[in-house]
């Protein structure tokens, strides 16, 4: 594993927020200048609970440039043999900038055969999309990729 590092920043932030309602997060705290916005972290905790977030095993594929944020092709995959004993249970796509951080949660399992899912998502502007995979042993893994969403020449309406 090349990037087996706990996301300490995210965890400590979350701990500091224990007890606050998820809806209050964005208004209670300013966005960190360089970090991921809090509601993306909150969404991850909402879906997957309090486990340690490890970096690695998850790959997010996005185009470098999207000419319209209404539809951006994304592929999320996780490094897993997808057997009965060792497989991906769930994978989530999380946005730090969209009005709703949670974009999709995929349910896989040993019968999925391969932990790779493609779809098309909306992106409210340039951002780094995160994907989190929950393995059959309960461990959580995160990967990310970013896309520049360009502005159209003529905005109608």
């Amino acid at each position: 594993m090349k990037n087996d590092r706990t996301d300490e920043l995210t965890l400590s932030r979350r701990l500091a927020l224990t007890g606050l309602g998820a809806g209050m997060l964005s208004s209670a705290l300013p966005f960190a200048a360089l970090g991921e916005p809090e509601d993306a972290d909150a969404a991850i905790r909402d879906i997957f609970g309090d486990g340690r977030l490890n970096e690695g095993k998850v790959t997010v594929k996005l185009p470098p440039i999207a000419e319209n944020g209404n539809s951006v092709a994304i592929t999320v995959s996780a490094d897993s043999p997808m057997t009965e004993e060792n497989h991906v249970r769930r994978m989530a796509i999380i946005s730090p900038r969209n009005p709703i951080a949670e974009i999709a949660v995929f349910e896989l399992g040993p019968r999925a055969g391969k932990a790779e899912v493609s779809t098309r998502i909306r992106m409210a502007g340039t951002q780094r999309i995160r994907a989190v995979a929950e393995m059959s042993d309960g461990s959580l893994w995160v990967g990310s990729a970013s896309t520049v969403v360009t502005l159209a020449a003529c905005v109608i309406g």
């Binding site: 209404n70 539809s71 951006v72 592929t75 997808m82 796509i93 946005s95 969209n98 009005p99 709703i100 949670e102 974009i103 999709a104 949660v105 995929f106 349910e107 896989l108 399992g109 040993p110 019968r111 999925a112 055969g113 391969k114 790779e116 899912v117 493609s118 779809t119 098309r120 998502i121 909306r122």
Partner: peptide, 29 residues
């Protein structure tokens, strides 16, 4: 579902693009 058994599922939110597209996998049993 594959012969009734759930092999893949997804929860969608408004961040999924119009005319939802999915590509996924299953093992032929």
């Amino acid at each position: 579902r594959y012969n009734g058994e759930l092999v893949f599922a997804s929860d969608f939110h408004p961040g999924i693009a119009a005319n939802p597209f999915l590509s996924f996998h299953t093992r032929a049993t």
